[in-house]
Nucleic acid binder design. Structure first.
Length: 511
RNA sequence: GGCGGUGUAGCUCAGCGGUAGAGCAGGGGAAUCAUAAUCCCUUGGUCGGUGGUUCAAAUCCGCCCACCGCUACCA
């Protein structure tokens, strides 16, 4: 039986249209999911939308719509982006679905039964516009005596009854959990932040609201709806079938990886494992907090007009090229500055020149000098062995880096081999060998095909369509494109299709 | 303010105790199979500053400077 692998994106909050940040997270997860499938895992890849809360209720009201119709529309935008980016998710969850409401209520009842929830009162300075409470110290007092939040929103003192989750009891257990699972929070710098936060002491968490109604009803107390994060985080077990432990997908829980933006790490690394431990459910294995793309160092915003549209980029440069760039340019976890110039440079230098041209020159030599048929792999010099050895070692090298979500490092390892292959073809000069030693020429070309096959196989998760085309060119049957298939040699004498460039150079319109 | 991190070639970064590295950019050369792509050689750094530990420090420690992150109930 195949080992299981469960990976999630966050569920996206539907109060705005999807942008490059959403695309980035989802693409990274897609690459990871595809890699695991390629490596023989039974993968469950989940994404979806988070649709409750006061902001959504208000946005719907402003639009003159009921919340459900409103979120039907915005959720569809996210689903559509997922489809247009050809994301390979296995499910798309919405928090407004019946299965999810039932799951949240079941989790609540379990927590309540375990004495983890009690009714109390929450009071403080509240800004309706921000949907947030503020500490006294964060507020500024205007000349007219009114107090405003840092955002400038007016605040008022409110008192509301609220259920609380006994988070304060979980601090030590969380610290022990982090200690015993050093890879739970990544990258490591984020781990330190979370640990220091927990060490500073946890307060009980308000987990219900009475100030609005657009949410999951608290069982047995319909005046309350659940706090949005308790609702949202639960989606990860809902999709796995919770509370039905006999569900087919329950075998996927606990999740292997939750990929999140760095802004929501705390919820995933502290609240979520605390909720799960309190409910006596298994905790996820890892949470990875990635960074942001900025536009020229500025945070993207609609008002600045510098929002980067992933669809436009995919249309202009190609989806696979965009995927490659996003994961290659910046270490996952770091912030990155988006620039078209850098994108074009990566595409032309690495995809077109290094890889595309290598394949093209190798394959056209075969087309012209080997009757378009794959040569045999009978003899090997030290140079052949070196290059093939480096290519074969990629499997382990890439696997180890993918395991840490070091996407850029994984690609760099692959490119080291591609550069070595370019040096190899130049040094071996098969175009000269064809006049002096035709058998040696055939061997050199076969080595190149074998190396390209390994490279293209491993690159499939990053660039599914482009690598499918390259593997077609290399004569690799569609049934032989898994990592495990690399142990089987390609049959000699197979007819290859006429070579065709896989990565054309991108030439900017002269203006 | 507290805790943590970063500061290395023009740019992006690796190295983290033993004579400064990669990619890109720049310069010179080779080749012409190939998407004018490729290959070879090469310029370039007092490794933020300053004290100290050590036979030896980019690498360990102290202080200083600059920048960044976290510092709970919007998501």
């Amino acid at each position: 039986m195949k080992p299981k692998y469960y990976i999630t994106t966050p569920i996206y909050y539907v109060n705005g249209a999807p942008h490059i940040g959403h695309a980035y997270t989802t693409i990274a997860c897609d690459v990871m999911a595809r890699f695991k499938r390629l490596d023989g895992y039974d993968v469950f890849f989940l994404t979806g939308t988070d649709e409750h809360g006061q902001k959504v209720e208000k946005a719907a009201g402003d639009a003159g719509m009921d919340p459900q119709s409103f979120t039907d529309g915005t959720s569809a935008l996210f689903r559509s982006l997922t489809e247009r980016l050809k994301i390979s998710n296995d499910d798309f969850i919405r928090t407004t679905e019946a299965r999810h409401k039932a799951s949240c209520q079941a989790l609540w009842q379990t927590l309540a039964a375990n004495n983890q929830i009690y009714l109390g009162g929450y009071e403080g300075w509240y800004a309706v516009r921000d949907e947030a409470f503020y500490d006294e110290g964060e507020l500024t007092t205007r000349p007219d005596g009114t107090k405003v939040a840092p955002s400038g929103a007016p605040v008022e003192w409110v008192v509301e009854p609220s259920y609380f989750f006994r988070l304060s009891e979980w601090g030590d257990k969380l610290l022990e959990f982090y200690e015993q699972n050093p890879d739970f929070i990544a990258p490591a710098s984020r781990r330190n932040e979370v640990i220091s936060f927990v060490k500073s002491g946890l307060r009980d968490l308000s987990v219900s609201r009475t100030s609005f109604t657009w949410g999951v009803k608290v069982p047995d107390d319909e005046a309350h709806v659940m706090y949005v994060w308790l609702d949202a985080l639960t989606n990860y077990i809902t999709a796995a079938g919770y509370p039905d432990a006999g569900a087919e997908r329950w075998g996927f829980w606990p999740a292997d990886l939750h990929v999140v933006g760095k802004d929501i790490l705390r919820f995933h690394a502290i609240y979520w494992p605390a909720f799960l431990m309190a409910a006596k459910l298994p905790t996820p294995k890892r949470v990875y907090a990635h960074g942001w793309w900025t536009a020229g160092g500025e945070k993207m915003s609609k008002s600045l007009g510098n929002v980067i549209d992933p669809q436009e980029l995919a249309d202009t440069f190609g989806l696979d090229s965009l995927r490659y760039f996003l994961l290659r340019e910046v270490p996952f976890g770091n912030d990155g500055t988006f620039s078209r110039k850098a994108l074009i440079s990566r595409l032309n230098t690495e995809l077109a020149n290094d890889l595309g041209n290598l394949a093209q020159r190798s394959l056209s030599l075969i087309a012209r000098n080997c009757d378009g048929r794959l040569p045999g792999d009978d003899l090997a010099t030290a140079e052949d062995a070196d290059l093939l050895g480096a290519a074969n070692a990629l499997v382990e090298g890439v696997r180890a880096r993918m395991e840490r979500q070091a996407f850029g490092d994984a690609l760099e390892e692959i490119w080291k081999v591609i550069r070595a292959a370019n040096a190899y073809i130049d040094h071996q000069a098969p175009w000269a060998l064809k006049k002096t030693d035709i058998n040696r020429m055939r061997c050199v070309l076969r080595v190149l095909v074998d190396v390209l096959r390994i490279v293209a196989t491993l690159l499939q998760p990053f660039m599914p369509d482009k690598m499918a085309a390259m593997l077609d060119q290399l004569g690799v049957p569609t049934t032989m494109r898994q990592i495990a298939d690399l142990e089987h040699r390609l049959a000699e004498g197979v007819a290859l299709p006429a070579p065709q460039g896989v990565f054309p150079r991108f030439v900017e319109d002269a203006e």
